[in-house]
Design a protein around this nucleic acid. Structure first.
Lengths: 279, 279
DNA sequence: CGGGTTTTGGAATTTTTATTCCATACAGAA
DNA sequence: TTCTGTATGGAATAAAAATTCCAAAACCCG
Protein backbone atom coordinates (compact mmCIF):
# COMPACT_ATOMS: atom_id res chain seq x y z
CA UNK A 1 0.00 0.00 0.00
CA UNK A 2 1.20 3.39 -0.95
CA UNK A 3 1.32 5.14 2.34
CA UNK A 4 -1.27 3.89 4.72
CA UNK A 5 1.43 3.48 7.30
CA UNK A 6 2.68 7.01 6.97
CA UNK A 7 -0.36 8.11 8.94
CA UNK A 8 -1.17 5.39 11.37
CA UNK A 9 -3.33 7.82 13.32
CA UNK A 10 -7.01 7.98 12.56
CA UNK A 11 -8.87 10.20 10.18
CA UNK A 12 -8.64 13.98 10.39
CA UNK A 13 -11.48 15.24 12.51
CA UNK A 14 -11.55 18.89 11.64
CA UNK A 15 -11.43 20.74 8.38
CA UNK A 16 -8.07 22.20 9.30
CA UNK A 17 -6.62 18.81 10.09
CA UNK A 18 -7.96 17.64 6.78
CA UNK A 19 -6.19 20.40 4.94
CA UNK A 20 -2.96 19.77 6.72
CA UNK A 21 -3.08 16.13 5.89
CA UNK A 22 -3.90 16.98 2.31
CA UNK A 23 -0.76 19.04 2.07
CA UNK A 24 1.37 16.52 3.94
CA UNK A 25 0.26 13.73 1.69
CA UNK A 26 0.18 15.42 -1.63
CA UNK A 27 3.71 15.28 -2.82
CA UNK A 28 5.09 12.05 -4.02
CA UNK A 29 1.70 10.91 -5.19
CA UNK A 30 1.22 9.00 -8.45
CA UNK A 31 -0.57 10.65 -11.28
CA UNK A 32 -4.20 9.73 -10.63
CA UNK A 33 -3.99 10.28 -6.91
CA UNK A 34 -2.41 13.63 -7.48
CA UNK A 35 -5.31 14.58 -9.71
CA UNK A 36 -7.58 13.67 -6.83
CA UNK A 37 -5.58 15.78 -4.42
CA UNK A 38 -5.58 18.76 -6.74
CA UNK A 39 -9.25 18.61 -7.48
CA UNK A 40 -10.25 18.08 -3.88
CA UNK A 41 -8.01 20.89 -2.72
CA UNK A 42 -9.73 23.24 -5.11
CA UNK A 43 -13.22 22.04 -4.35
CA UNK A 44 -13.30 21.40 -0.66
CA UNK A 45 -16.63 23.03 -0.39
CA UNK A 46 -18.28 20.58 -2.74
CA UNK A 47 -17.41 17.48 -0.80
CA UNK A 48 -20.43 17.81 1.45
CA UNK A 49 -22.89 17.88 -1.42
CA UNK A 50 -21.41 15.53 -3.98
CA UNK A 51 -21.23 11.81 -4.63
CA UNK A 52 -18.09 9.83 -5.27
CA UNK A 53 -19.00 9.58 -8.90
CA UNK A 54 -19.43 13.32 -9.29
CA UNK A 55 -16.16 14.20 -7.63
CA UNK A 56 -14.32 11.48 -9.52
CA UNK A 57 -15.64 12.83 -12.76
CA UNK A 58 -14.59 16.32 -11.78
CA UNK A 59 -11.11 15.12 -11.02
CA UNK A 60 -11.03 13.09 -14.21
CA UNK A 61 -10.42 9.77 -12.51
CA UNK A 62 -12.47 6.62 -11.99
CA UNK A 63 -14.40 6.35 -8.73
CA UNK A 64 -12.11 3.70 -7.42
CA UNK A 65 -9.15 6.05 -7.59
CA UNK A 66 -11.01 8.53 -5.48
CA UNK A 67 -11.84 5.85 -2.96
CA UNK A 68 -8.18 4.98 -2.67
CA UNK A 69 -7.44 8.61 -2.16
CA UNK A 70 -9.88 8.88 0.73
CA UNK A 71 -8.18 5.97 2.36
CA UNK A 72 -4.76 7.45 1.92
CA UNK A 73 -6.04 10.52 3.73
CA UNK A 74 -6.85 8.27 6.65
CA UNK A 75 -10.57 7.77 6.25
CA UNK A 76 -12.18 4.38 6.06
CA UNK A 77 -13.82 5.51 2.86
CA UNK A 78 -15.58 8.34 1.13
CA UNK A 79 -18.59 8.30 3.43
CA UNK A 80 -16.51 8.95 6.49
CA UNK A 81 -14.77 11.82 4.79
CA UNK A 82 -18.04 13.27 3.64
CA UNK A 83 -19.48 13.08 7.13
CA UNK A 84 -16.75 15.42 8.32
CA UNK A 85 -17.82 18.05 5.83
CA UNK A 86 -21.52 17.53 6.22
CA UNK A 87 -21.30 17.98 9.94
CA UNK A 88 -19.13 21.04 9.82
CA UNK A 89 -21.19 22.53 7.05
CA UNK A 90 -22.39 25.89 8.29
CA UNK A 91 -24.37 27.69 5.69
CA UNK A 92 -25.12 31.10 7.19
CA UNK A 93 -25.49 32.01 3.59
CA UNK A 94 -28.62 30.75 1.93
CA UNK A 95 -30.83 33.07 3.85
CA UNK A 96 -28.61 35.97 3.20
CA UNK A 97 -28.12 35.13 -0.43
CA UNK A 98 -31.83 34.83 -0.96
CA UNK A 99 -32.61 38.02 0.82
CA UNK A 100 -29.95 39.84 -1.14
CA UNK A 101 -31.46 38.68 -4.38
CA UNK A 102 -34.87 39.80 -3.23
CA UNK A 103 -33.60 43.22 -2.35
CA UNK A 104 -31.73 43.64 -5.59
CA UNK A 105 -34.75 42.57 -7.53
CA UNK A 106 -36.70 45.54 -6.22
CA UNK A 107 -35.36 47.35 -9.21
CA UNK A 108 -32.21 49.34 -9.73
CA UNK A 109 -32.37 52.67 -8.01
CA UNK A 110 -34.86 51.63 -5.35
CA UNK A 111 -33.57 52.14 -1.87
CA UNK A 112 -33.83 48.42 -1.12
CA UNK A 113 -31.62 47.62 -4.09
CA UNK A 114 -29.13 50.24 -2.99
CA UNK A 115 -29.01 48.74 0.45
CA UNK A 116 -28.28 45.33 -1.02
CA UNK A 117 -25.39 46.73 -3.01
CA UNK A 118 -23.83 48.57 -0.13
CA UNK A 119 -24.20 45.62 2.18
CA UNK A 120 -22.57 43.37 -0.33
CA UNK A 121 -19.77 45.84 -1.00
CA UNK A 122 -19.13 46.05 2.72
CA UNK A 123 -19.10 42.34 3.13
CA UNK A 124 -16.65 41.86 0.29
CA UNK A 125 -14.43 44.53 1.68
CA UNK A 126 -14.32 42.83 5.04
CA UNK A 127 -13.50 39.52 3.50
CA UNK A 128 -10.80 41.14 1.45
CA UNK A 129 -9.38 42.73 4.55
CA UNK A 130 -9.17 39.40 6.33
CA UNK A 131 -7.48 37.88 3.33
CA UNK A 132 -4.98 40.57 2.62
CA UNK A 133 -3.88 41.99 5.92
CA UNK A 134 -0.30 41.30 6.79
CA UNK A 135 -0.11 40.36 10.44
CA UNK A 136 3.45 41.55 10.74
CA UNK A 137 2.65 45.03 9.60
CA UNK A 138 -0.37 45.10 11.85
CA UNK A 139 1.79 44.19 14.82
CA UNK A 140 4.33 46.83 13.94
CA UNK A 141 1.64 49.44 13.71
CA UNK A 142 0.33 48.45 17.11
CA UNK A 143 3.83 48.62 18.54
CA UNK A 144 4.46 52.11 17.28
CA UNK A 145 1.16 53.40 18.55
CA UNK A 146 1.39 51.66 21.89
CA UNK A 147 4.77 53.22 22.58
CA UNK A 148 3.65 56.72 21.71
CA UNK A 149 3.23 59.39 24.33
CA UNK A 150 0.23 60.68 22.50
CA UNK A 151 -1.52 59.49 19.38
CA UNK A 152 -2.40 62.14 16.83
CA UNK A 153 -5.16 61.34 14.40
CA UNK A 154 -5.39 62.92 10.99
CA UNK A 155 -8.20 62.23 8.57
CA UNK A 156 -10.42 64.50 6.54
CA UNK A 157 -13.40 64.16 4.29
CA UNK A 158 -14.08 60.48 3.78
CA UNK A 159 -11.42 59.55 6.30
CA UNK A 160 -12.84 61.77 8.97
CA UNK A 161 -15.42 59.29 10.28
CA UNK A 162 -12.59 56.82 10.70
CA UNK A 163 -10.44 59.28 12.59
CA UNK A 164 -13.30 60.30 14.83
CA UNK A 165 -14.18 56.70 15.53
CA UNK A 166 -10.60 56.02 16.52
CA UNK A 167 -10.63 59.08 18.74
CA UNK A 168 -13.75 57.81 20.45
CA UNK A 169 -12.42 54.30 20.97
CA UNK A 170 -8.99 55.36 22.16
CA UNK A 171 -10.45 57.87 24.52
CA UNK A 172 -12.69 55.22 26.03
CA UNK A 173 -9.56 53.25 26.79
CA UNK A 174 -7.75 56.18 28.30
CA UNK A 175 -5.15 56.45 25.59
CA UNK A 176 -3.96 60.04 25.17
CA UNK A 177 -5.24 61.07 21.80
CA UNK A 178 -5.62 64.18 19.75
CA UNK A 179 -7.99 64.40 16.84
CA UNK A 180 -6.80 66.91 14.26
CA UNK A 181 -10.15 67.89 12.87
CA UNK A 182 -9.31 71.23 11.42
CA UNK A 183 -11.86 73.09 13.50
CA UNK A 184 -11.27 76.78 13.09
CA UNK A 185 -8.65 76.02 10.48
CA UNK A 186 -6.04 76.15 13.19
CA UNK A 187 -2.69 74.66 12.52
CA UNK A 188 -1.97 72.22 15.29
CA UNK A 189 1.19 70.80 13.84
CA UNK A 190 3.22 72.20 16.72
CA UNK A 191 1.28 69.81 18.95
CA UNK A 192 3.34 66.93 17.60
CA UNK A 193 6.02 66.33 20.20
CA UNK A 194 8.93 63.92 20.31
CA UNK A 195 7.78 60.50 21.36
CA UNK A 196 4.32 60.96 19.88
CA UNK A 197 2.95 59.03 16.92
CA UNK A 198 0.74 60.05 14.06
CA UNK A 199 -1.95 57.96 12.50
CA UNK A 200 -2.55 59.30 9.02
CA UNK A 201 -5.75 58.21 7.35
CA UNK A 202 -6.24 59.18 3.76
CA UNK A 203 -7.52 57.89 0.47
CA UNK A 204 -7.33 59.10 -3.08
CA UNK A 205 -7.66 61.98 -3.70
CA UNK A 206 -5.30 62.38 -0.79
CA UNK A 207 -6.06 65.39 1.31
CA UNK A 208 -3.14 67.80 1.41
CA UNK A 209 -3.59 68.54 5.11
CA UNK A 210 -3.06 64.93 6.06
CA UNK A 211 -0.06 64.54 3.79
CA UNK A 212 1.46 67.73 5.13
CA UNK A 213 1.00 66.63 8.70
CA UNK A 214 2.57 63.26 7.91
CA UNK A 215 5.54 64.99 6.33
CA UNK A 216 5.92 67.23 9.30
CA UNK A 217 5.78 64.30 11.70
CA UNK A 218 8.15 62.22 9.68
CA UNK A 219 10.69 65.05 9.48
CA UNK A 220 10.62 65.40 13.22
CA UNK A 221 11.27 61.72 13.68
CA UNK A 222 7.81 60.69 14.88
CA UNK A 223 6.46 57.30 14.00
CA UNK A 224 3.79 57.57 11.35
CA UNK A 225 1.25 54.82 10.80
CA UNK A 226 -0.65 55.08 7.55
CA UNK A 227 -4.12 53.79 6.92
CA UNK A 228 -4.59 54.20 3.21
CA UNK A 229 -5.73 52.64 -0.01
CA UNK A 230 -2.56 51.69 -1.83
CA UNK A 231 1.08 51.13 -0.97
CA UNK A 232 2.01 53.96 -3.33
CA UNK A 233 -0.10 56.53 -1.55
CA UNK A 234 1.82 59.74 -0.76
CA UNK A 235 1.83 58.98 2.95
CA UNK A 236 3.21 55.50 2.47
CA UNK A 237 6.88 56.39 2.08
CA UNK A 238 6.72 58.66 5.09
CA UNK A 239 5.40 55.91 7.31
CA UNK A 240 6.88 53.36 9.66
CA UNK A 241 3.95 51.04 9.03
CA UNK A 242 1.55 51.10 6.11
CA UNK A 243 -1.80 49.42 6.34
CA UNK A 244 -3.71 49.23 3.10
CA UNK A 245 -7.40 48.56 2.96
CA UNK A 246 -9.11 47.00 -0.02
CA UNK A 247 -12.46 48.76 -0.13
CA UNK A 248 -14.92 47.68 -2.76
CA UNK A 249 -16.94 50.52 -4.10
CA UNK A 250 -20.39 50.79 -5.46
CA UNK A 251 -21.08 53.70 -7.69
CA UNK A 252 -19.29 56.79 -6.60
CA UNK A 253 -19.23 55.72 -2.99
CA UNK A 254 -16.79 53.50 -1.30
CA UNK A 255 -17.67 51.40 1.68
CA UNK A 256 -15.92 52.12 4.97
CA UNK A 257 -16.52 48.76 6.56
CA UNK A 258 -13.06 47.36 6.17
CA UNK A 259 -11.37 50.58 7.15
CA UNK A 260 -13.38 50.81 10.33
CA UNK A 261 -12.81 47.19 11.22
CA UNK A 262 -9.10 47.72 10.88
CA UNK A 263 -9.30 50.94 12.86
CA UNK A 264 -11.14 49.41 15.79
CA UNK A 265 -8.70 46.52 15.77
CA UNK A 266 -5.82 48.92 16.07
CA UNK A 267 -7.53 50.85 18.83
CA UNK A 268 -8.32 47.82 20.93
CA UNK A 269 -4.92 46.23 20.38
CA UNK A 270 -3.21 49.45 21.36
CA UNK A 271 -5.45 49.90 24.37
CA UNK A 272 -4.80 46.38 25.55
CA UNK A 273 -1.05 46.66 25.04
CA UNK A 274 -0.85 49.88 26.97
CA UNK A 275 -2.90 48.75 29.92
CA UNK A 276 -0.78 45.60 30.10
CA UNK A 277 2.34 47.71 30.25
CA UNK A 278 0.73 49.70 33.04
CA UNK A 279 -0.17 52.69 30.93
CA UNK B 1 -54.18 12.21 -2.99
CA UNK B 2 -54.03 15.12 -0.64
CA UNK B 3 -53.30 18.00 -2.87
CA UNK B 4 -51.22 17.00 -5.81
CA UNK B 5 -53.67 18.82 -8.02
CA UNK B 6 -53.40 22.08 -6.16
CA UNK B 7 -50.06 22.62 -7.84
CA UNK B 8 -50.24 21.05 -11.21
CA UNK B 9 -47.14 22.98 -12.22
CA UNK B 10 -43.78 21.33 -11.83
CA UNK B 11 -41.39 21.48 -8.95
CA UNK B 12 -40.04 24.79 -7.68
CA UNK B 13 -36.78 25.51 -9.40
CA UNK B 14 -35.29 28.19 -7.22
CA UNK B 15 -34.90 28.51 -3.51
CA UNK B 16 -37.31 31.43 -3.45
CA UNK B 17 -39.93 29.50 -5.34
CA UNK B 18 -39.42 26.70 -2.88
CA UNK B 19 -40.06 28.97 0.04
CA UNK B 20 -43.13 30.43 -1.53
CA UNK B 21 -44.56 27.05 -2.19
CA UNK B 22 -43.74 26.02 1.34
CA UNK B 23 -45.80 28.89 2.66
CA UNK B 24 -48.60 28.40 0.18
CA UNK B 25 -48.91 24.77 1.04
CA UNK B 26 -48.41 24.84 4.73
CA UNK B 27 -51.79 25.67 6.09
CA UNK B 28 -54.46 23.08 6.04
CA UNK B 29 -51.92 20.33 6.39
CA UNK B 30 -52.50 17.32 8.62
CA UNK B 31 -50.40 16.86 11.71
CA UNK B 32 -47.42 14.89 10.42
CA UNK B 33 -47.11 16.84 7.23
CA UNK B 34 -47.25 20.05 9.17
CA UNK B 35 -44.40 18.80 11.33
CA UNK B 36 -42.46 18.26 8.13
CA UNK B 37 -43.25 21.75 6.90
CA UNK B 38 -42.21 23.33 10.17
CA UNK B 39 -39.00 21.43 10.45
CA UNK B 40 -38.03 21.98 6.85
CA UNK B 41 -38.84 25.67 7.08
CA UNK B 42 -36.48 26.00 10.01
CA UNK B 43 -33.75 23.86 8.51
CA UNK B 44 -33.69 24.72 4.86
CA UNK B 45 -29.95 24.83 4.92
CA UNK B 46 -29.60 21.23 5.98
CA UNK B 47 -31.53 19.77 3.09
CA UNK B 48 -28.47 19.71 0.88
CA UNK B 49 -26.45 17.62 3.30
CA UNK B 50 -28.95 15.31 4.93
CA UNK B 51 -30.67 12.06 4.10
CA UNK B 52 -34.38 11.46 4.22
CA UNK B 53 -33.94 9.47 7.39
CA UNK B 54 -32.04 12.23 9.14
CA UNK B 55 -34.53 14.92 8.25
CA UNK B 56 -37.45 12.69 9.12
CA UNK B 57 -35.94 12.01 12.50
CA UNK B 58 -35.40 15.71 13.03
CA UNK B 59 -38.99 16.44 12.21
CA UNK B 60 -40.15 13.54 14.35
CA UNK B 61 -41.91 11.70 11.56
CA UNK B 62 -41.28 8.48 9.70
CA UNK B 63 -39.39 8.73 6.41
CA UNK B 64 -42.45 7.96 4.40
CA UNK B 65 -44.20 11.04 5.74
CA UNK B 66 -41.33 13.15 4.57
CA UNK B 67 -41.47 11.58 1.16
CA UNK B 68 -45.12 12.44 0.92
CA UNK B 69 -44.28 15.95 1.90
CA UNK B 70 -41.73 16.31 -0.87
CA UNK B 71 -44.35 15.21 -3.34
CA UNK B 72 -46.89 17.66 -2.04
CA UNK B 73 -44.34 20.38 -2.65
CA UNK B 74 -44.29 19.32 -6.26
CA UNK B 75 -41.13 17.25 -6.45
CA UNK B 76 -41.06 13.72 -7.72
CA UNK B 77 -39.38 12.76 -4.50
CA UNK B 78 -36.75 13.72 -2.00
CA UNK B 79 -33.86 13.33 -4.39
CA UNK B 80 -35.24 15.90 -6.77
CA UNK B 81 -35.77 18.33 -3.95
CA UNK B 82 -32.28 17.77 -2.63
CA UNK B 83 -30.79 18.36 -6.04
CA UNK B 84 -32.23 21.89 -5.99
CA UNK B 85 -30.37 22.69 -2.83
CA UNK B 86 -27.18 20.93 -3.76
CA UNK B 87 -26.97 22.78 -7.02
CA UNK B 88 -27.80 26.17 -5.62
CA UNK B 89 -25.29 25.75 -2.87
CA UNK B 90 -22.81 28.52 -3.54
CA UNK B 91 -19.37 27.90 -2.14
CA UNK B 92 -19.22 29.93 1.06
CA UNK B 93 -15.83 31.46 0.27
CA UNK B 94 -13.67 28.72 1.70
CA UNK B 95 -10.76 31.07 1.41
CA UNK B 96 -12.24 33.50 3.78
CA UNK B 97 -13.25 30.86 6.28
CA UNK B 98 -9.78 29.37 6.31
CA UNK B 99 -8.05 32.67 6.61
CA UNK B 100 -10.33 33.67 9.44
CA UNK B 101 -9.46 30.52 11.33
CA UNK B 102 -5.78 31.14 10.79
CA UNK B 103 -6.05 34.64 12.13
CA UNK B 104 -8.04 33.57 15.14
CA UNK B 105 -5.56 30.86 15.86
CA UNK B 106 -2.83 33.40 16.36
CA UNK B 107 -3.85 33.40 19.96
CA UNK B 108 -6.48 35.37 21.80
CA UNK B 109 -5.41 38.95 22.32
CA UNK B 110 -3.03 39.08 19.39
CA UNK B 111 -3.85 41.81 16.96
CA UNK B 112 -4.46 39.31 14.18
CA UNK B 113 -7.03 37.51 16.28
CA UNK B 114 -8.70 40.78 17.12
CA UNK B 115 -8.91 41.66 13.47
CA UNK B 116 -10.57 38.35 12.74
CA UNK B 117 -13.18 38.99 15.40
CA UNK B 118 -14.00 42.47 14.26
CA UNK B 119 -14.18 41.45 10.65
CA UNK B 120 -16.52 38.65 11.51
CA UNK B 121 -18.66 40.86 13.71
CA UNK B 122 -18.93 43.34 10.87
CA UNK B 123 -19.83 40.69 8.38
CA UNK B 124 -22.54 39.29 10.59
CA UNK B 125 -23.92 42.73 11.21
CA UNK B 126 -24.17 43.39 7.51
CA UNK B 127 -25.91 40.12 6.88
CA UNK B 128 -28.28 40.86 9.72
CA UNK B 129 -29.00 44.24 8.24
CA UNK B 130 -29.90 42.76 4.88
CA UNK B 131 -32.14 40.26 6.57
CA UNK B 132 -33.95 42.55 8.92
CA UNK B 133 -34.39 45.83 7.15
CA UNK B 134 -37.95 46.69 6.34
CA UNK B 135 -38.06 48.14 2.87
CA UNK B 136 -41.19 50.11 3.59
CA UNK B 137 -39.63 51.93 6.48
CA UNK B 138 -36.52 52.56 4.46
CA UNK B 139 -38.60 54.12 1.72
CA UNK B 140 -40.48 56.27 4.17
CA UNK B 141 -37.24 57.49 5.65
CA UNK B 142 -35.95 58.40 2.23
CA UNK B 143 -39.19 60.23 1.45
CA UNK B 144 -39.03 62.33 4.56
CA UNK B 145 -35.42 63.25 4.03
CA UNK B 146 -35.80 63.92 0.33
CA UNK B 147 -38.63 66.36 0.97
CA UNK B 148 -36.75 68.27 3.61
CA UNK B 149 -35.49 71.77 3.04
CA UNK B 150 -32.41 70.97 5.03
CA UNK B 151 -31.27 67.79 6.71
CA UNK B 152 -29.96 68.13 10.24
CA UNK B 153 -27.70 65.41 11.51
CA UNK B 154 -27.36 64.59 15.18
CA UNK B 155 -25.00 61.94 16.48
CA UNK B 156 -22.46 61.98 19.28
CA UNK B 157 -19.86 59.65 20.65
CA UNK B 158 -20.14 56.37 18.86
CA UNK B 159 -22.75 57.76 16.50
CA UNK B 160 -20.61 60.70 15.51
CA UNK B 161 -18.63 58.91 12.81
CA UNK B 162 -21.92 57.94 11.24
CA UNK B 163 -23.24 61.45 11.34
CA UNK B 164 -20.06 62.85 9.88
CA UNK B 165 -20.04 60.25 7.14
CA UNK B 166 -23.57 61.21 6.24
CA UNK B 167 -22.61 64.86 6.23
CA UNK B 168 -19.78 64.10 3.85
CA UNK B 169 -21.88 62.02 1.50
CA UNK B 170 -24.85 64.40 1.44
CA UNK B 171 -22.62 67.33 0.89
CA UNK B 172 -21.00 65.64 -2.07
CA UNK B 173 -24.44 65.30 -3.56
CA UNK B 174 -25.34 68.91 -2.95
CA UNK B 175 -28.00 68.17 -0.39
CA UNK B 176 -28.30 71.01 2.15
CA UNK B 177 -27.08 69.52 5.37
CA UNK B 178 -26.11 70.62 8.82
CA UNK B 179 -24.02 68.50 11.11
CA UNK B 180 -24.77 69.23 14.74
CA UNK B 181 -21.41 68.36 16.16
CA UNK B 182 -21.53 70.28 19.37
CA UNK B 183 -18.43 72.32 18.58
CA UNK B 184 -18.14 75.06 21.12
CA UNK B 185 -21.08 73.60 23.03
CA UNK B 186 -23.32 75.93 21.08
CA UNK B 187 -26.97 75.19 21.02
CA UNK B 188 -28.04 75.11 17.43
CA UNK B 189 -31.56 73.95 18.02
CA UNK B 190 -32.91 77.19 16.70
CA UNK B 191 -31.47 76.21 13.35
CA UNK B 192 -34.27 73.71 12.88
CA UNK B 193 -36.78 75.40 10.69
CA UNK B 194 -40.19 74.35 9.41
CA UNK B 195 -39.85 72.00 6.48
CA UNK B 196 -36.50 70.66 7.64
CA UNK B 197 -35.88 67.10 8.77
CA UNK B 198 -33.73 65.66 11.50
CA UNK B 199 -31.78 62.48 11.32
CA UNK B 200 -31.16 61.33 14.87
CA UNK B 201 -28.47 58.71 15.31
CA UNK B 202 -28.05 57.25 18.75
CA UNK B 203 -27.41 54.00 20.53
CA UNK B 204 -27.59 52.91 24.15
CA UNK B 205 -26.63 54.71 26.30
CA UNK B 206 -28.56 57.33 24.36
CA UNK B 207 -26.93 60.66 24.36
CA UNK B 208 -29.14 63.32 25.93
CA UNK B 209 -28.21 65.92 23.36
CA UNK B 210 -29.53 63.82 20.52
CA UNK B 211 -32.72 62.92 22.34
CA UNK B 212 -33.28 66.56 23.27
CA UNK B 213 -32.82 67.67 19.71
CA UNK B 214 -35.22 65.01 18.51
CA UNK B 215 -37.82 66.14 21.03
CA UNK B 216 -37.36 69.70 19.97
CA UNK B 217 -37.76 68.82 16.31
CA UNK B 218 -40.73 66.60 16.92
CA UNK B 219 -42.48 69.29 18.93
CA UNK B 220 -42.03 71.72 16.14
CA UNK B 221 -43.53 69.30 13.65
CA UNK B 222 -40.35 68.39 11.79
CA UNK B 223 -39.94 64.90 10.40
CA UNK B 224 -37.51 62.92 12.49
CA UNK B 225 -35.78 59.85 11.11
CA UNK B 226 -34.16 57.68 13.75
CA UNK B 227 -31.15 55.46 13.21
CA UNK B 228 -30.91 53.50 16.41
CA UNK B 229 -30.46 50.12 18.00
CA UNK B 230 -33.91 49.10 19.18
CA UNK B 231 -37.50 50.07 18.46
CA UNK B 232 -37.89 51.11 22.09
CA UNK B 233 -35.09 53.62 21.98
CA UNK B 234 -36.08 57.03 23.36
CA UNK B 235 -35.96 58.60 19.93
CA UNK B 236 -38.21 55.98 18.40
CA UNK B 237 -41.55 57.34 19.50
CA UNK B 238 -40.58 60.81 18.40
CA UNK B 239 -39.80 59.68 14.90
CA UNK B 240 -41.66 59.44 11.65
CA UNK B 241 -39.46 56.57 10.54
CA UNK B 242 -37.37 54.31 12.75
CA UNK B 243 -34.52 52.33 11.29
CA UNK B 244 -33.00 49.82 13.66
CA UNK B 245 -29.62 48.32 13.07
CA UNK B 246 -28.59 44.94 14.44
CA UNK B 247 -24.92 45.43 15.29
CA UNK B 248 -23.04 42.47 16.60
CA UNK B 249 -20.51 43.39 19.19
CA UNK B 250 -17.21 41.94 20.15
CA UNK B 251 -16.00 42.69 23.61
CA UNK B 252 -16.88 46.19 24.67
CA UNK B 253 -16.90 47.48 21.10
CA UNK B 254 -19.68 47.32 18.67
CA UNK B 255 -19.12 47.24 14.97
CA UNK B 256 -20.36 50.13 12.87
CA UNK B 257 -20.47 48.31 9.57
CA UNK B 258 -24.19 47.86 9.35
CA UNK B 259 -24.93 51.34 10.57
CA UNK B 260 -22.68 52.87 7.96
CA UNK B 261 -24.05 50.73 5.18
CA UNK B 262 -27.53 51.87 6.07
CA UNK B 263 -26.37 55.46 6.33
CA UNK B 264 -24.75 55.54 2.93
CA UNK B 265 -27.82 53.89 1.44
CA UNK B 266 -29.98 56.65 2.83
CA UNK B 267 -27.63 59.31 1.60
CA UNK B 268 -27.44 58.00 -1.93
CA UNK B 269 -31.16 57.29 -2.13
CA UNK B 270 -31.95 60.78 -0.91
CA UNK B 271 -29.43 62.33 -3.24
CA UNK B 272 -30.84 60.45 -6.21
CA UNK B 273 -34.41 61.29 -5.31
CA UNK B 274 -33.67 64.97 -4.99
CA UNK B 275 -31.74 65.29 -8.21
CA UNK B 276 -34.52 63.47 -10.02
CA UNK B 277 -37.01 65.97 -8.66
CA UNK B 278 -34.79 68.68 -10.06
CA UNK B 279 -33.43 70.22 -6.90
C1' DC C 1 -72.26 4.16 16.36
C1' DG C 2 -71.18 2.95 11.33
C1' DG C 3 -69.41 3.85 6.75
C1' DG C 4 -66.43 6.32 4.08
C1' DT C 5 -62.29 9.10 3.71
C1' DT C 6 -57.86 10.68 5.06
C1' DT C 7 -53.69 9.96 7.41
C1' DT C 8 -50.16 7.19 9.17
C1' DG C 9 -46.24 3.84 10.05
C1' DG C 10 -43.50 0.53 8.66
C1' DA C 11 -42.11 -3.33 5.93
C1' DA C 12 -40.86 -4.54 1.11
C1' DT C 13 -38.77 -3.05 -3.00
C1' DT C 14 -36.08 -0.46 -6.10
C1' DT C 15 -32.58 2.57 -7.06
C1' DT C 16 -28.55 4.76 -6.17
C1' DT C 17 -24.21 5.02 -4.15
C1' DA C 18 -20.10 3.32 -1.99
C1' DT C 19 -16.71 -0.06 -1.76
C1' DT C 20 -13.92 -4.06 -2.90
C1' DC C 21 -11.32 -6.89 -5.86
C1' DC C 22 -8.73 -8.44 -9.51
C1' DA C 23 -6.81 -8.65 -14.10
C1' DT C 24 -4.07 -5.67 -16.66
C1' DA C 25 -0.87 -1.83 -17.61
C1' DC C 26 3.02 0.49 -16.39
C1' DA C 27 7.65 1.88 -14.48
C1' DG C 28 11.98 1.11 -12.85
C1' DA C 29 15.93 -2.02 -11.74
C1' DA C 30 18.92 -5.55 -13.07
C1' DT D 1 14.65 -7.60 -22.10
C1' DT D 2 12.73 -9.69 -18.06
C1' DC D 3 11.41 -9.39 -13.47
C1' DT D 4 9.08 -7.10 -9.59
C1' DG D 5 6.32 -4.22 -7.43
C1' DT D 6 3.13 -0.33 -7.90
C1' DA D 7 -0.78 1.93 -10.14
C1' DT D 8 -4.98 1.71 -12.63
C1' DG D 9 -9.76 0.92 -14.49
C1' DG D 10 -13.69 -1.38 -14.44
C1' DA D 11 -16.72 -4.96 -13.25
C1' DA D 12 -18.80 -7.23 -9.17
C1' DT D 13 -20.58 -6.75 -4.68
C1' DA D 14 -22.19 -4.70 -0.55
C1' DA D 15 -24.36 -1.08 1.80
C1' DA D 16 -27.24 2.65 2.19
C1' DA D 17 -30.68 5.41 0.70
C1' DA D 18 -34.92 6.47 -1.54
C1' DT D 19 -39.36 5.19 -2.78
C1' DT D 20 -43.60 2.57 -2.93
C1' DC D 21 -47.37 0.23 -1.06
C1' DC D 22 -50.68 -1.42 1.94
C1' DA D 23 -52.86 -2.58 6.19
C1' DA D 24 -54.15 -0.33 10.23
C1' DA D 25 -55.44 3.79 12.73
C1' DA D 26 -57.59 8.11 13.14
C1' DC D 27 -60.86 11.18 11.73
C1' DC D 28 -65.17 13.06 10.13
C1' DC D 29 -69.93 13.27 9.04
C1' DG D 30 -74.14 11.84 9.35
Amino acid sequence: MTSSEAFPQGAPDTVEAFQERLIAVSDGLPKRLRQCADYIAGNIDRIAVSTVAELAQGAGVPPSALMRFCQILGFSGFSEMQRLFRDSYVPGRPDYATRLRNLRDKGAGSSAALLAEFVEAGRQSLEGLARSTDEKVLDEAVNHLAKAGMIHLAGFRRAFPVASYLAYALEKMNVPTMLHDGTGKLDHSHALRPGDALMAITFAPYSPETVALAEHASRRGLAVVALTDTPISPVAQLSAAVLTVPEVDFGAFRSLSATLALAITLAVAVGARRSRNGT
